[in-house]
Amino acid sequence: MRQEIAFVEKEELKRKPDTASLGFGKYYSDYMFVMDYHSEKGWYDPRIVPYAPLTLDPAATVFHYGQAIFEGLKAYKTPDGTIQLFRPEKNMQRLNDSCERLCMPQIDEEFLLSAIKELILTEKDWIPSEVGTSLYIRPFIFATEAYLGVRPAQEYKLLVILSPSGAYYGDQLNPVKIHVEEDYVRAVIGGVGHVKTAGNYAASLKAQEKAEANGYAQILWLDAKENKYVEEVGSMNIFFKINGEVVTPKLNGSILPGVTRDSVIELLNYWNIPVREEKISIEEIFAAHERGELEEVFGTGTAAVISPVGELNWNGRVITINDYQIGQLSQRIYDELTGIQLGKKEDPFNWTVKVAHVEV
């Protein structure tokens, strides 16, 4: 039997931020969704409450053994006032995949999605409608049991917070410079690289810091075993257009199965544009550039959607892609995906999920 979601009203609502200053992940709405778990009770006490700090025991196992996972998706407001989500069932499935890998309790995907919809309706005034903006949705689960023994926790907390956001990289379609990491690795097959656990991102910070100090926006990770095969960018999957064909690294257990990645592959197949998922080495990428066949490089992810790449630096070898201009295919994909997400283009894939209609 489905649990009722309690609601605790906030006494005073926040002032909404200026849309022009949104950036990404800087502001948070008035309310959040919370639900708790105990091994003897299951998930219980779902509620929408005022956004506020949390109180945790210093011995909470999340601090010591890192059981923490998250997801990221967005709500959009269409020109006619419809609020909609983009393939949210994929995020719910991936959240449970992360739970399974980190020995955390599974969630009822349908119930959590309904709770997210209810939270969005509560916070509908926080959804920006200007070009390039959206309401970012961050569900996350972490261990709360006070216990210092090494084993899966018996208690957890699930939260969903909302953040009105603009472009992830500022000028959304301005090609970024990417450093190919030579010293550090992101993940290994058999590890946790294929799930969204917090530790993956903590482990990437050192390399990211080094790259930014040298003027690069992101890291391109290579495989951990041979340090030669392309895997993914720090916050995105990666695609290469070579001599008319699109190539992206094949999912291998250490690469995150991105929702946007999957959508791009479906879109390219729909357009009858050749696309292959396969192991591809960084040497092959640089060789394609030398032959004049590397036409476009772009990253894909929920936050950025499509991020064109203008430069790759590998062991001091620097190549420029498409003269630092966004490629025609990258632009077409971006226009199509954002058009579907914003309700401006037809959705032949049934990717969008309607939440509600509001007055515009």
Score class of each variant (00 low, 15 high):
V62W: 11
N350F: 10
I116V: 14
P53S: 14
N227Q: 15
D323G: 06
G149C: 09
L256K: 01
G191R: 05
H357C: 12
A146E: 11
P58Y: 09
D171L: 11
K10C: 04
V150S: 09
E155N: 12
G301V: 09
K354P: 06
T248L: 03
R94I: 08
L220W: 10
G170L: 08
Y37F: 14
I120W: 00
S165T: 14
W351K: 05
G23V: 02
W314C: 09
E130A: 13
G244Y: 06
E336T: 04
T19L: 10
V275F: 03
E109Y: 05
E155K: 15
V131T: 11
M92Y: 02
G327L: 04
E231Y: 05
K279P: 08
W314M: 07
R47K: 15
K225F: 13
V246W: 00
G292F: 06
S21Q: 13
M32K: 14
F286R: 08
L256G: 01
Y136E: 01
V264R: 00
L22H: 09
I116L: 14
E212V: 11
E9A: 13
A224H: 05
A217N: 11
L135G: 01
T352L: 12
G215T: 11
F86Y: 10
R138H: 07
E311W: 01
G166K: 00
K344C: 04
G258L: 07
P348I: 11
T82D: 13
I306E: 00
F24G: 03
L173C: 03
I285M: 09
K177Q: 07
R317N: 14
A60Q: 05
T122M: 12
E284T: 15
